[in-house]
Each structure stands twice: as C-alpha cells, then as structure tokens.
Design a protein around this nucleic acid. Structure first.
Lengths: 121, 121
DNA sequence: ACGAACGTGTAGTATGTACTACATAGTCAT
DNA sequence: ATGACTATGTAGTACATACTACACGTTCGT
C-alpha cells in the first residue's frame, strides 16, 4: 500500500541534488536561507531525522525546487489548506465523491475535471 | 466566508441536549464515559474552552450522537484520514478536481458522484 | 432531606510540531 | 595551506495537541 516512511526527505534531497548538479546555489545552506529556515533543520528534514515542516515552509520549498506544492504536501501526508476549506464547506458531498474516486482510473478523473471545467451544469 | 469560531462545541452541545430531552443518558458525564474521555474535557470542548478533540474521539462522538463523522470533522476543520490517504496517492489529479468543485453547485457534484458510482469509465 | 448524579473549575501531563543556535569536522578553490 | 563554504551533530526553546485527575458546588429524584 505505498510506503510513507520517509518519502518526503528523500524526495527533497534528490530534487535539490539534481538541481545542484548544474547550479551550485542549491546547497543545503543556500536553499535553507532562501526558504527562510536554518540549514541544520533542512538537513534533518532531508535525512528523515525530522518530520516534514509545516505547510507554509513546504510551499516555499516547492517553489524553490520548481515542484508542485500539492505533490510535496502529499509526500508530507498533508492536505493543502485551501482544499481543506473547500471540503469543510460541503463535507458530505465532497467526501462521498472522493471516496468514489478511490478506485477510479486517472483517465476517468481527468474526464470529470474537464467536464466540470467546461461548467456544463 | 462562513465563521469557524466555535461551531464544533456549539453543535455538539445542541445535539447532545436535543437527545437528552428524551433520554437522560445523554448527560455530559455519561456521553463522555461512553466516548472514553473525561467529563470535564467534553464540557470544555462543548463550551469552546478547548479546541475540538482528535479524529478518533470525534468519530466516537459522532457515532454516539448519531451524526455523520465527516460533518463533525468538517466542523472541527479536519479532513478524515481516509480522504487524506486517497488525496495523497494522486495529489495533482484530485487537488485539481476539488478546486474545480469549489464553485460548482451541489447538483453538479451529485451528478458526478452518480456517474462515477455507475462506473462508466 | 439526602445521596447520587450533575456540570464545571483548576491543575497538570505526555507527545508532537516547528523550529533556532552553536559547534565541529570535512571539502574545495585559489 | 588557509580561508571560505559545506554538511551535520547536539542541545535547547516555544507553542500546540490531546488529553487526565481531582475537587467543588449544584441539582434532581425518591
């Protein structure tokens, strides 16, 4: 059932090292500085010694690494606060829908996104 | 934008008192005992002196009060862990969909739930 | 009227979250 | 070879979460 363990730190480290290969400014220190946290903290997060940081820090990190914030948040086991707010307003309806989507193929979900985007209601 | 303040406690107290009108076993003490928490704790939650409890406690409380757990969790500003897990697996896809649903009318969401339930993919 | 059950106030605990600060040892560029 | 930058280890802080334990005064049923 997909391991959770330390996907987040491993993923961030891999991504940062990849960027670093062609740009020396992607060191732990410099990324941490740009994100606004201590280098030691980022180091520990990448090595899984500390759990993933809070939503805001994850967002800044995602931006810095050119990554999708939702993906990084997912790796951290968190749900974006704007999605939480949408669910909060219509919990029964949206909870039902999400549970229905559990076993739907990507293609079916994509189709629904397009349908809704076209606003055919 | 819909006040959050203390919907949770107020709602629980109202619901419990309503049930109590026809069943004396819905006192703070007895409900707390059945849920597995201290009466003083439930009292404080109902009066908004303490923030809503954890997911498991909310689930037991919902069951005890004959309420939908997703609704109570929503009032507490939380997202059910099973929904979090579903989102975690396909964050981009599902996050996009939920954001599209933000302004969709209930009726459109209901139609989608039915569509997906019929499994027409 | 009196004992049981009631709601609630005060105080305290354990664990988790989200960090900072400093020190040390290694690497690298000139 | 030395100064700068690097990664990381150790230690500690502040606040939030999720509760428990106990005591107090009140109310309710018989």
């Amino acid at each position: 059932m997909t391991a959770v363990i330390d996907d987040f730190g491993t993923y961030v480290r891999a991504r940062r090292e990849a960027l670093r290969a062609s740009d020396a400014s992607f060191s732990v220190r410099q990324v941490a500085k740009r994100v606004g946290i201590e280098p030691a903290y980022l180091s520990k997060i990448e090595r899984g010694e500390m759990p993933p940081p809070g939503e805001e820090t994850i967002r800044k990190l995602a931006h810095e690494l050119g990554e999708d914030a939702d993906v990084l948040l997912a790796l951290a086991g968190k749900v974006s606060s704007d999605l939480r707010e949408i669910i909060r307003r219509r919990p029964r309806l949206i909870a039902d829908l999400i549970r229905q989507l559990k076993n739907a193929p990507d293609r079916a979900i994509l189709r629904i996104v397009r349908e809704v985007k076209d606003g055919d209601w």
